[in-house]
Design a protein around this nucleic acid. Structure first.
Ligand SMILES: [Zn+2]
Ligand SMILES: [Zn+2]
Ligand SMILES: [Zn+2]
Ligand SMILES: [Zn+2]
Lengths: 134, 134
DNA sequence: ATTGCATTTGCAACTATTTGCATTATAATG
DNA sequence: CATTATAATGCAAATAGTTGCAAATGCAAT
C-alpha cells in the first residue's frame, strides 16, 4: 500500500488538530495545501487510513461522523445525550471487558475508539432537563 | 408524546421482521400500508422511536444504519470485518462492564445495542484472507 | 362541535457519503 | 529507460440522511 500524498497530509492535519474532525473539516483544511483535491478523494483516503488502523471513525451523535488520529494509548468516550458533553476514558477501563469477550467468543476485537451514549452526572439530577435543549 | 400512526406501523413492521432493517427497507414495507407516506416522515418516526428507547439504531459496517425493535432481553453484536458474519451476545456479557463504567464515571449508560468490530475465529487463521472479499 | 396548542407530516432543498468509470500517478519488471 | 500492473484521483451520478417551513392532524378543554 503506497502512502498517497493526500493520506500524508491528512495524517499531518489530524496530528496537529488532535481532535474529532468531520470529513468536511478535514477537507477544508486539506484544501489549503492541495486546493484542487476532490472531496471523494478525501473520503477514500480517510477510509484507507481507517482500514489500516491509523485513524478512528466514530458516530458521536452528530450528523456527520468524526475522524481522529490514533496515538499509542487508545482511548474511548462517554457521550452525554442531554448536554453533549464528551468524556474520555483510557483503554484500561475497557481492556478487561474486551479480553473476556475475546476469550469467550474466540473473536479478535478491532474496535479501537468505543463510543457509549448515556447521561452524565450533571444531567442525571431528578427529572432535570438542564444544561441545554433537547 | 403521542403515538403517531407511522410510529405504530413501524413498530408492527419491526416486530414482524425481527431483523436489522435499513430505513429504506422500513420505508418500502410501510409503503405497502401507507402508500403516500414520505421518506422523511419515516426517518423522523424512527428517530423518535430511537429517542424513546423502543428501537435501536446501529452502524453495522454497511453503508446504511439499521434499526431493530428492542425486546425485553437486550442483546449486542460482534461483527467480523472480513466475512461480515454477525454474532449475537447476550446482555449478561456486557452488564458488568457497563456497571463498572457507570460507577467509576458517574455516567448512566443508555447504549442498548452495542456493536463491536473484529475478526471472527474462522477468519483469524494465519494470514488467511478466506471466506470472502475484502 | 369549536378552539387552542403541540406534534406530525409533506415537500423541497440541503448536507453527507458512496460508487462507477475513465484518467493519472506510482511502483515493479525487464 | 520502456512496459506492465496496481493503486489513487477527479468527476458526476446515485444513495443516505437532515432540516426549515407551512399545512395537517390529534388531543384536550371549553
Ligand atoms: Zn477520541
Ligand atoms: Zn450531560
Ligand atoms: Zn441486534
Ligand atoms: Zn469472519
Amino acid at each position: 500500500m503506497r502512502a498517497s500524498s493526500v493520506e500524508q497530509i491528512i495524517i499531518e492535519t489530524l496530528s496537529k488538530e488532535h481532535a474529532h474532525l468531520t470529513s468536511q473539516q478535514v477537507f477544508e483544511i486539506i484544501r489549503k495545501r492541495l486546493p484542487a483535491v476532490n472531496q471523494s478523494t478525501v473520503y477514500r483516503a480517510l477510509t484507507r487510513l481507517v482500514d489500516s488502523g491509523k485513524v478512528s471513525v466514530s458516530d458521536m451523535g452528530t450528523k456527520a461522523v468524526v475522524y481522529e488520529l490514533l496515538t499509542d494509548g487508545l482511548h474511548h468516550h462517554l457521550v452525554c445525550q442531554k448536554c453533549r458533553q464528551i468524556m474520555t476514558i483510557g483503554h484500561e477501563e475497557v481492556e478487561d471487558f474486551f479480553g473476556d469477550l475475546q476469550l469467550k467468543n474466540h473473536f479478535q476485537i478491532v474496535t479501537n475508539h468505543l463510543i457509549l451514549f448515556g447521561i452524565c452526572e450533571n444531567c442525571q439530577v431528578g427529572t432535570n432537563t438542564n444544561t441545554e435543549e433537547m
